[in-house]
Amino acid sequence: MLRASVIVFPGSNCDRDVKVALEKVTGFPVQMVWHGDASVPASDLIVLPGGFSYGDYLRCGAMAAHSPIMRDVVAKAKAGTPVLGICNGFQVLCESGLLPGVLMRNASLKFICRDVHLKCEQDDTFFTQCYRKGEVIKVPVAHAEGNYFADTDTLDRLEGEGRVAFRYSDAEGNVSAATNLNGAQRNIAGITDKSGRVLGMMPHPERLFETALGGTDGRRVFESALVSVTSALS
């Protein structure tokens, strides 16, 4: 049976939203897994939700990255289990070393909570295959630390390997300093690991997955996962 797991850290606050999105879009039963557990039960995909794990102490995601459950998440990700990190989950993925770089304080120093345009840069990974390359979508962000930073070599490698998933853009898909929401290097809003099975993104696809929420632009992250899992089985 197909199953998804959502990791719950103290301070996670988007865990139940993403559970509903997963259940409604993929139909998978969703297991909520506490951060203090030693292992994640058998799962076809794992989600690290948004929130303020451990109160953002030290650095966002730093404490969560060293919680007991993360040892197993890292091991499972390295063995091929797909992992999606949203917002604080993206920060945790960076701090745990599953994704390169780090999310710093927004250049404006402000908490930014609004819908933003994203240019989709991938159409062939586990969580992005239902998007079209170059397509522009509108998804909410809600963060104070979303300013993606990595050194130039790392950024060039990400670009060269096609690992930038989403960039902050305008409605026409123009990517420029003017559309750079938070100071992120090269307007990066989301990246994948080398295998394409680990995605970290600052925007919240689970907040816009059905029309009752005002739109469905985030829905295809979960549809992509469904297609990826079921096509791997056939």
């Binding site: 030290l58 650095r59 730093a62 060293h66 701090e95 390169p100 770089g101 780090v102 710093m104 930073f149 990595a150 050194d151």
Partner: peptide, 9 residues
């Protein structure tokens, strides 16, 4: 190295 500093930045 493990926790207190993030040596990326």
């Amino acid at each position: 190295k493990d926790l207190l500093a993030n040596t990326v930045i």
